[in-house]
């Protein structure tokens, strides 16, 4: 367990201080595409400096180190209780080291005990698979961008959104419009079409585990992803909502079955400070391979 604790602290550190390569590439491309001398370009330059500085100093990219969400793929028989206990201890240790801010508040008393551990914090999602590997992915999901997420129930009359793909497109783009720069754009959308109120948001977040370059295997969803990305970047919202070209860096959409009575479209917004990493564990709990 000691080795696993060490691994998880290192996973938390790296997730908090380093942006994944695919996201960095997208940010550099949008900086190059932005009009020179604008405040939008200025914002992206500061973002690039910030990424470099955080990595060099091994300090959080953003001070909101976010909701701590683990996704664990494991074979049957894996001890989930042990893992969760170790993950909780690792979170508290990483907080002491300053890789995470004291970021978890008791919703009733308003008290922050500084451990980042409490009811529902951190969250660990386990998923069993047939393969022998254990892989642990971590997402640190900021609060500012979480606040601009939105769930639509179709039909949405005000937006002329019916229960079809065009209706989905309309509400997703409405979410981009309403978010403006408030979610620290340029952002990334994770979307789930269908599901219920809880699973819709849950699946929408899981889309953030895909790399930005990953294309959707479903042709219709792939077309929708590309279309929403292109359209959003024609709206002129820009980095931080300053106006400019880079409104979104990526759009990832999945679909889940729904009840005949409901049709939800759940949109999660990830800020440019897109913190996700993952590792495959060795038998002793050591890091065998980085996943992003």
């Amino acid at each position: 367990m000691e080795k696993l604790a060490e691994t998880l602290i290192e996973l938390i550190r790296r997730t908090s201080v380093e942006i994944p390569d695919d996201v960095n590439r997208a940010l550099i491309a949008s900086l190059e595409a932005e009009k020179k001398g604008t405040i939008a370009e200025g914002a992206l330059k500061i973002i690039e400096q910030n990424i470099e500085l955080a990595k060099r100093k091994s300090q959080p990219i953003c001070q909101d180190t976010g909701s701590i969400i683990f996704y664990v793929d494991c074979p049957a028989g894996f001890d989930q209780l042990d893992f969760e206990a170790t993950a909780r201890a690792a979170v508290t240790a990483a907080t002491k080291k300053g890789f995470l801010r004291q970021n978890s508040v008791d919703s009733l008393t308003g008290k922050n005990d500084g451990t980042n551990v409490g009811p529902g914090a951190p969250t660990v999602h386990f998923h069993q698979h047939r393969a022998p590997e254990v892989s642990v992915r971590l997402m640190l999901k900021g609060g500012g961008c979480e606040n601009v997420g939105a769930q639509y129930s179709l039909p949405a009359e005000k937006l002329s959104a019916n229960r079809d793909l065009d209706g989905c497109r309309r509400v997703i783009l409405d979410a981009v419009l309403q978010a403006q720069g408030k979610g620290c754009g340029p952002g990334i959308l994770g979307v789930c079409i269908g599901g219920d109120r809880a699973t819709g948001y849950e699946f929408s977040k899981q889309q953030f585990l895909r790399t930005l370059e990953d294309r959707n295997a479903n042709a219709e969803l792939d077309a929708l992803e590309q279309d929403v990305l292109k359209t959003a970047n024609e709206l002129g919202i820009g980095p931080m909502g300053f106006g400019g070209k880079a409104t979104l860096l990526g759009v990832k959409i999945c679909a889940a079955n729904r009840l005949p009575a409901s049709f939800f479209v759940s949109v999660s917004y990830m800020c440019w400070a897109y913190r996700r990493q993952g590792v495959n564990l060795g038998a002793a709990g050591q890091i065998e391979k980085w996943l992003y």
């Binding site: 959080p60 990219i61 001070q63 400070a273």
Partner: peptide, 13 residues
């Protein structure tokens, strides 16, 4: 005055 959201390190400097 709008600061750059997320630029925690540049601003901490």
């Amino acid at each position: 005055l709008h600061a750059i959201g997320g630029a925690a390190q540049v601003l901490a400097e």
